[in-house]
Design a protein around this nucleic acid. Sequence first.
DNA 1: GAGCGC
DNA 2: GCTCT
Length: 314
Amino acid sequence: MELSLDVSEKPFSLEHTLRCGQVFGWRQRGEWWVGVVNNQPVAVLANGNVVKVRCEHASMSDEVFNYFGLGDNLESILTSVAKDPLIVEAARQWYGLRICRQNPWECLATYLCSIDSNISKIELCLSRLRQRFGRRLLLGDEELFTFPTADALSKASEADLTACALGFRTRYIMQASRRVASGEIILEEVSKLSYSEAIQVLIGDEKGTKNLLGVGPKVADCVLLFSMGKLEAVPLDVWMRRLVARSYRHLFEAEQYGRLLRRLEEGTITLRGYRIVSEAMRRYFGPYAGYAQEYLFQHIRYLKGSVADARKNT
DNA sequence: GAGCGC
DNA sequence: GCTCT
C-alpha cells in the first residue's frame, strides 16, 4: 500500500536525515529510499508537503513519523540553538535534517561497529551482519534484511561472527548481544531514564565494572541521541573535537583547560575531558545541544572538503 | 599511550 | 574509540 504523511509546516529533508551518517542500511532507488523500520520493509519519498510511504501495514505511517523524528518541532529547536553565526550557517545549509529514533539495539550494535572505522566500512560490517543473521524481507523486488536481534547474535557461533569481519569489535558485539538477550540490560528501560542516568548505565561506573564492553562516552552518546531521543547528548568524535578546539575554545578559556584544548585537536581524550567538553556544549546550546552537534558535524565534514574527506574518519 | 583487527 | 597495562 502507499500512505501519505502530511509534513506541511514541518521542515524535513529525507536526504539530509538519511545521509548524515546517523542511520545505516538505507539505499536510494530513484527518488525513493528503501529500508527497514520496525522490522518491516519500507520505501520512503519526501515530496514537498507530503512524505509517501510504500509499506505493508497501515501502522507504518506512525512508525515512520516517529522514526524520522517528525514529532520534533525543528523550527523552535533550531531557533533555540542559534547561539552564533557558525551554527546559524550550519542550520541554514542542513535545514530539515532530523534526529532519528532508531531501534536502540540496532543503534548500539551499529556504533560498536563504528569504533575506529568509517562510514563505508561500517556499512559493510552491518550488511554482513544483516545478511547472515537477519530476516530476509521483500518489498516489490527489493530484497532487504532486518537487523539481527540481540538474541540471534548472542546465539551466533564465533566463527559465523568472525566471518562478518568486525575485527576487535566482534567481542563487543558478542558481549552486548548476550547481555541484552539475557535481559540483564533492557535498552527500552534505559531510554526511559534521564540523560545523565542513562549514560551512566551504558558506560558503567567509573573504575568499577564496565557495563558494556566497547561502550565509552562517544558510543553511549550516539545511542542516546540517535535511538533514545536524548536530544541533549553531544557525541564528540574527532570532527567535533577539532571544531570545539577551533571554534568554541572560548568556552574553555580558564587556564586549567589549556591541556584539554591541546588534546582535543590531537588525540586521546580522557573520560573526564570528554565530560567537561560535552557538558560545556550542553550549557552553551541548551537542551537540544544534540541537534546543534549534528548540524555542526555535517557542516564541518562538508566544508571545503570533498565527500571523500568527509568519509575518512568517525 | 600502544594496540586492537580488518 | 575503547581497553588494558
